[in-house]
Amino acid sequence: MKQMVSENGHYLIGLEQNKTGLLSDPIQFPEYAVLLIHKGKGTYHADFSSFGFSGPMLLFATPMQTIYLQSETPVTYTLLRFHTDFYCIETHREEVACNGLLFNTIYIEPSVTISETEHTALYQLIEQMKEELERKDRSEMVIRAYLQLLLAKCSSMKLRSLNDKELNLPKDAIMEKFRLLLDEHYLTLHKPNDYADLLAVSPNTLSKKAVRYFGKTPSQLIQERLILEAKKMLHLTSYSIKEIAYRLQFNDEYYFSRFFKKHTQVSPLVFRNESGRTTTVNLSIQ
């Protein structure tokens, strides 16, 4: 058995390899997902964004993201999924540093190209995890240790990839300022024109630069930033849906629920119930 479930049958962690049809159609997993592409190329769709991939490569997905693979050549892969009830990346952020880097980020692609050597190392680690999962006397502590090491290695590879990219592609000062402004004003400024005014550029210039720099339009980034904060509150706090709507400055919880479902395909309550709420972390969000 290549998976572990709780006493009530709740999926905790598991590995799957090239399961027929699993990722060929849009699907939402309640768990975090790490996809190790061994061979093949195509397009990775995650919610409303798309990214090209070519193995060996790592792809990542956060809980309840709508994802699927559109292949150009035959693709082989290993899919690792883990629920926050088994391993909370926020609780262990100092050890693995993957939150905002591999998962829960709107500014960078949820992927990293890896070398054959890195692929071999990750595959061996996954095989060791698989062996432990299949043992009758398997140890949760050992499996968690493998997962933590895997995530830490993936984060390190992603950081190296970003550093290499920065060396070859100088930062755009206007886009970096847009990123800062969006993180500061996403609760109150919801139109691209608002940010264009603050940056003293035309809306058309802002749009072209954003698509070139982030691969997304300003409108997409604004909406995704709000959704990201909503997911954070649903996952890491005990706030009610009504209180979250209030803190995100929506007129009422029903409008918030419609907005959330439009962009995630699920309601806030379903997201919380499926992805879980971390009881060991309770953010104080002002």
Rank of each mutant, 00 (worst) to 15 (best):
L79W: 02
Q128Y: 01
R160H: 08
E134L: 09
Q28P: 00
I114W: 15
I114D: 07
N104T: 01
M157T: 07
L80M: 00
D183V: 08
P268H: 13
P74H: 12
S257A: 12
K262Y: 03
P268S: 04
E7D: 15
D137G: 07
A61E: 01
Y68T: 10
S156Y: 08
K208R: 15
L162T: 06
E95Y: 05
Q286Y: 05
L149T: 10
G276F: 03
D85W: 03
F60E: 10
Y87C: 02
L79H: 02
Y254D: 03
E243P: 03
K262I: 05
L198F: 13
S284V: 09
E140P: 12
I227S: 05
E72G: 00
D172K: 08
K209H: 15
T278W: 04
I241V: 15
S275E: 01
F51N: 04
E116F: 06
L101A: 07
H92G: 08
E166Q: 08
F60S: 07
E184N: 11
L221N: 09
F271L: 05
K2N: 05
G14P: 00
S161R: 11
Q220M: 14
Y123K: 15
Y68F: 10
K136T: 13
E134P: 04
T73H: 10
A230S: 12
E7Q: 14
V211E: 10
L133H: 10
L181C: 14
G100R: 15
Q223N: 09
L248G: 06
P56F: 00
L150Y: 00
L283D: 09
